[in-house]
């Protein structure tokens, strides 16, 4: 597809969304250990991937990802309050305090989770696409995974099926260079992850994930291919996580210089620079956006604080659709 010329509105949308993800997660990080517990995997540094997806995808397309899911949830329009309340384990959270950080969901907002078993969402994403095709829609499923997840056998089984059955799915690797403490190079001879599509003749491409424009273009093209030709695509979006794998990881497997190198090409700062450069807005307007975002984050925390925990009776709900299921009680 022809390269899209991006507008002022695109840039301001990206800026605000990325800033929301960033500030929301900075706050979540501060609240971790006192208000938020369990595993908490921050997305900081990777925001351009979700921002580019949001502007590129269709209005009825669906999304599934792994446990590093706060950005995807916020991008898909789950309110910051519902996400923060979920991190708190409150009943007002987007899964009623049942799923927590790793299992954010909102079916209505077309976000189908939040999955904790590495790679397990790859076949699920193809299955969501299968159902769209089966039901005769032209919707696409965007299925995200990490660089570590691509070493699971399920990826190969799914790629073969998706190509053979012509499923409208876009597989998106967020290659942040590490799976916990393991670099991409230590897991395989094949470090150009997009080439994993080649064995199945799946169209594939590497994408600069620090540049939201590149992400948008690649995802728009892939969605178009899935929508109009039912051909899956594999995108390898090269990005970086600034923080440790989860809150307990000191990240000693990489250098401070490496982190600095990526901070210098921070995706939000790149968008800010373009906005100022092109005169789409002045600094005062960007400051106003920042103030607005911070207020949203504050409100989300207040909402989470003010919300009640689920009543204990919630333990025996949502396990079966059958309302009177006879659980074993002793």
């Amino acid at each position: 597809m022809a390269k899209k010329a991006f507008s002022k509105a695109d840039y301001l949308y990206w800026f605000e969304l990325m800033l929301l993800m960033r500030r929301f997660e900075e706050r979540a990080g501060q609240l971790y250990g006192t208000k938020i517990r369990g595993f908490c995997h921050l997305y900081i540094g990777q925001e351009a991937v979700v921002a580019g997806m949001m502007s590129a995808m269709g209005p009825n397309d669906k999304v599934i990802t792994a446990y590093r899911d706060h950005g995807h949830a916020l991008g898909m329009g789950i309110s910051p309050g519902a996400v923060m309340a979920e991190l708190y384990g409150k009943i007002t959270g987007c899964t009623k305090g049942k799923g927590g950080s790793m299992h954010l969901f909102d079916k209505e907002k077309r976000f189908l989770g939040g999955h904790g078993i590495v790679g397990a969402q790859i076949p699920l994403g193809a299955g969501i696409a299968f159902a769209e095709k089966y039901q005769g829609t032209d919707n696409v499923c965007l299925c995200f995974m990490g660089d570590g997840a691509v070493r699971q056998g399920a990826l190969h089984e799914t790629f073969n099926i998706a190509m053979t059955w012509k499923l409208p799915v876009v597989f998106i690797i967020e290659n942040n260079m590490y799976a916990m403490g393991t670099s991409v190079a230590r897991t395989s001879n094949v470090t150009d992850l997009h080439r994993l599509g080649q064995a199945y003749d799946m169209p594939n491409q590497a994408v600069d994930g620090m540049k939201v424009e590149s992400v948008h273009q690649a995802i728009a093209d892939a969605c178009n291919r899935a929508r109009t030709e039912q051909i899956p695509t594999l995108l390898e979006i090269k990005t970086y996580r600034y923080k440790g794998h989860s809150m307990s990881d000191p990240a000693k497997y990489r250098t401070r210089e490496e982190v600095e190198e990526y901070r210098r090409i921070d995706p939000i700062e790149q968008v800010r620079a373009t906005i100022l450069d092109k005169g789409y807005a002045n600094q005062a307007t960007l400051d106003d956006i920042e103030t607005k975002v911070l207020a949203q984050v504050d409100e989300s925390v207040q909402f989470a604080e003010d919300s009640p925990y689920p009543p204990d009776s919630e333990l025996y709900t949502d396990v079966y659709m059958q309302a009177d299921y006879p659980y074993l009680q002793d």
Partner: peptide, 21 residues
């Protein structure tokens, strides 16, 4: 014979539900 098991449900996230579980 008496038994004390985990609750007959998937483990939820909220701290109070885990206590109940």
């Amino acid at each position: 014979v008496k038994r004390v098991n985990g609750a007959d449900v998937p483990m939820p996230y909220a701290a109070n539900l885990i206590e109940a579980y």
